[in-house]
Design a protein around this nucleic acid. Structure first.
Lengths: 226, 226
DNA sequence: AGCCTAACCAATTGTTGATTGGTTTCGCAA
DNA sequence: TTGCGAAACCAATCAACAATTGGTTAGGCT
C-alpha cells in the first residue's frame, strides 16, 4: 500500500521539481520508470490517478502532457446545411458580411485592395457563369481577409461553406454568361471604392445593398423555375 | 507566334478529349511535354494562361488540377483558437452579437423571452463567478436561439467555442462572487427589455454597449494582472 | 494474490527518397 | 540581340517505411 502511493509521490515530486508549464510533454513512460526507479505498472497507476484528476492527459503515439486535454470541437458544415435553407443562409449573409466589410474598410492593406480590384476585373470579364462565380467568391473572401481578423475570416468561411452546401442543386445555364450590365459589377465597384476610401459606413451599406440584390435575384430565379 | 499558341491549342484539345471532371489531377508537366510533343517552356506558358483564366490551378509538389483552387477553410475550433487572440475574439463578438440581438428582437417567441428572463434571474443570484458565467453564457446563447436562424446560431456557437478555447489563461478569484452592482446586470436587463419590446435598434445597441463594457473589463483585468 | 518483466498492439510521429511545379543557366539559331 | 529548347537545380509536397509511445496481455517470481 505504501508502495502503491510511493510511485505517485515520486511522480508528484518530480513534477514539482521541474515545474513544467501547461501543455508540456513529459518523458515517455519507459524513461520515467528509470528516472523514478519505479516499475512501469506502478508508474502507470500514478499517471492514471493524475489523469483522472485532470492534472494531465495521455494519448497513444503522442505522449503524456500536463494540463487538461485539448477539446476537439468541430462546427460540422454538413450538419448545419442539413438543418437550414437558402433563406436563412442569405439572411445570415445580410447580417454578417456588411459588418465584415466595415471592418475591411478600416484594416485593408494596399495589397488587399489590389487583389480586390483584380477579382473585380476578373468577374467583369468572366466568359461563363462558372468563372463569374469563382471571381465573385474570391472577391467576397478577399473582403473577409482584408478585415484582418482570424475569427471573422473563419466565421465567413464557415458561412460560405454552408452556403455552397445548401445551394448545391442550383445550376445556371453553362452556355450563357453574365450580361454586361449585371447589377453586381456596379455594386462591387462601390464596395471596393468605399473600402479604398476607408469609408466604413459606405462599405457596410454597399455590401448590404449588393447582398439585397443577390437575395432578390434568388427569389425571382426561384419563381421563374416554378 | 503560331507555335506559341499551338501549345495552348494542343493542351485544350487534350483536355477536351479526356473531358476530365473538376478537381482531377492531370499528368506532371514533364510527361505532358512528351504526350503533346511540346517543349516544357511552351507547355508552361499554356498552363499559365489557363491558370490565370481560372480554368485550372497548380501547386509545387502537388500537381496541376482542373477547376478553381480550393480555398483553405477552417471549421476546426482548435485550429482557429491557435491562430487568434482575445482581442480578435472580442472584436468579432462586438460585430456579430449585436446583429444577432437585432434579429432576436424581431423573431423571439414568448418562450424565448421567458427563458431570457430566467437566465437573467440566475445570473443575478449567482453565488460564484463560475455560476455567473454559466448563466451569462446561457443568456447570450438564448439570444442567439431567439433569432430563430439555424446558421446564425451555428456561427454563434463556433464563435463561443473559440472564445472558451482562447481565454484559457484567464482566471477569476474562485472565492469571490459578482458584486450586486455588476455592470452586466443592468445591461442584460436593457437588452432583454428591448427584445421584448421588439426594438431592433435598442437590442443591437444594448448588446453593443454590454460587450463594450466586457471588453473594457478585459483590459483592466489584464492591466491589473501586470 | 500482487508485482515485475517482457513482449506485443495500434496510433502517432519522424525520416528518407521520390515527385512536382517553379526557376535559372547554357547553348543554339534566326 | 532575341527567342526557344534542353538540362540542371530548388523548394514544397507526398509516399512509404521505420521508430516512438501509451495501452494491453502473458508468464514467471515472491
Amino acid at each position: 500500500m505504501d508502495q502503491g502511493q510511493g510511485a505517485l509521490t515520486q511522480l508528484r515530486a518530480y513534477l514539482a521539481q521541474r515545474d513544467l508549464p501547461a501543455n508540456s510533454r513529459l518523458p515517455p513512460e519507459r524513461e520515467l520508470c528509470d528516472i523514478l526507479g519505479v516499475s512501469r505498472g506502478e508508474l502507470r497507476k500514478a499517471l492514471a490517478a493524475m489523469e483522472s484528476n485532470g492534472e494531465l492527459w495521455r494519448h497513444v503515439g503522442k505522449g503524456t502532457f500536463i494540463g487538461a486535454r485539448p477539446t476537439k470541437e468541430y462546427s460540422d458544415v454538413a450538419a448545419i446545411a442539413a438543418l437550414t435553407n437558402p433563406r436563412e443562409v442569405m439572411q445570415a449573409r445580410l447580417l454578417i458580411e456588411p459588418q465584415i466589410a466595415r471592418e475591411a474598410a478600416l484594416n485593408a492593406t494596399a495589397g488587399d485592395i489590389a487583389e480586390l480590384k483584380q477579382s473585380m476585373f476578373a468577374s467583369r470579364h468572366a466568359q461563363t457563369w462558372r468563372q463569374y462565380e469563382n471571381s465573385d467568391n474570391r472577391l467576397h473572401r478577399t473582403v473577409a481577409e482584408a478585415a484582418h481578423n482570424t475569427v471573422l475570416l473563419a466565421l465567413f468561411d464557415t458561412l460560405n461553406a454552408v452556403r455552397r452546401a445548401v445551394v448545391w442543386g442550383r445550376l445556371r445555364d453553362k452556355i450563357d454568361r453574365p450580361p454586361p450590365d449585371h447589377h453586381s459589377f456596379k455594386e462591387h465597384e462601390l464596395l471596393v471604392r468605399a473600402i479604398e476610401e476607408r469609408d466604413m459606413d459606405g462599405a457596410g451599406q454597399a455590401m448590404l445593398r449588393h447582398l439585397s440584390h443577390v437575395q432578390a435575384n434568388l427569389l425571382t430565379a426561384r419563381q421563374a423555375a416554378e
